[in-house]
């Protein structure tokens, strides 16, 4: 296991007015590791993703990137570090075309004038490398199907050659087979040595691809689990809070008990 985590959060807290969304959250993601982030609704999962991606910076706490403390105050800061985020609601502009969406926030320009030719060339190159067929990269995104839009959203995370990919419920709107393909992709990302933070409610997905599970409950850490040695029930009780008592802290049942 790598000596230094790729990304480490230490004592991260965030407050929205009266609501303490995150409190002293710790999290480590190593290169070549898939960490699943689980938690019930309002556990702070999406808030944590926004902290890491710079959309909603933390109030307190330290973010360490490869061992040294960094400031992620803006989405650009995260991009520079090599953190790519695929959001739950895709976060794309329907009125812009595929090229514009891919390069939004990191447009290529010469002397302040957008270099559309270069951007389109790179888009086509990237789509070709990924064997993605989009009928026309110059149509507004709103005219593409939901699946195609999701492909564009994921493709976008490849542009900056990321070191860490954050996926916020990527399988929520996908069918079974598409989910399976996406999970394959996540494994490939890991095999390439990227760190992956996967948010999902689906225990099957987590069991399938994650190495470790970090559970949040009401904005606090509520346990880290090794997927290979922990039972599903244990994780679920940690999510729901049923494990907040002495009984649940006892040694878990034997491995053979879960399918």
């Amino acid at each position: 296991m790598a000596a230094q985590p790729l990304l480490a959060l230490r004592g991260v807290s965030k407050r929205f007015a009266a609501v303490q969304a995150l409190e002293d959250v710790e999290l480590e993601i190593r290169a070549g590791e898939v960490v699943a982030l689980m938690g019930d609704n309002a556990a702070g999962k999406s808030t944590l993703v926004k902290v890491i991606s710079g959309v909603g910076p933390a109030d307190r706490g330290v973010i360490e990137w490869q061992g040294s403390a960094v400031q992620i105050r803006r989405p650009q800061d995260a991009q520079v570090l090599g953190i790519a985020t695929v959001y739950q609601d895709l976060a794309m502009c329907g009125n812009l075309d595929v090229v514009a969406n891919l390069f939004l926030g990191r447009e290529i320009h010469r002397l302040g004038i957008l270099d559309e030719v270069e951007m389109e060339r790179r888009t086509r190159e990237l789509l070709k490398t990924l064997s993605i067929r989009i009928p026309d990269v110059r149509v507004p995104l709103a005219t593409l199907s939901g699946g195609q839009r999701q492909v564009v959203a994921i493709t976008r995370s490849f542009l900056g050659e990321p070191r860490l990919v954050l996926l916020d419920e990527p399988t929520a709107s996908l069918g079974i087979e598409q989910t399976s393909q996406l999970l394959d992709l996540i494994e490939e990302l890991r095999d390439q040595g990227l760190g992956v933070l996967l948010i999902s409610h689906n225990m099957g997905d987590i069991k399938a691809v994650a190495d470790r599970v970090a559970v949040l409950r009401l904005g606090r850490n509520n346990g880290f689990f090794d997927v290979t040695t922990t039972s599903q029930e244990q994780i679920i009780s940690s999510i729901t809070g049923a494990s907040d008592n002495a009984v649940a802290h006892r040694t878990s049942r034997p491995e053979e008990a879960w399918p």
């Binding site: 490398t129 990924l130 064997s131 993605i132 067929r133 989009i134 009928p135 026309d136 149509v139 593409l144 199907s145 699946g147 195609q148 999701q150 492909v151 994921i154 493709t155 490849f158 087979e177 598409q178 393909q181 996406l182 394959d184 992709l185 490939e188 990302l189 390439q192």
Partner: peptide, 26 residues
């Protein structure tokens, strides 16, 4: 690499659209 996988994944999603992709349709 991830490319092949995403490609396969994408191909699956875009296949129906590809069939509709005749110029008149556009």
């Amino acid at each position: 690499g991830p490319a092949g996988r995403l490609g396969a994944y994408a191909g699956r999603l875009t296949a129906p659209a590809g069939r509709l992709g005749a110029p008149t349709e556009a």
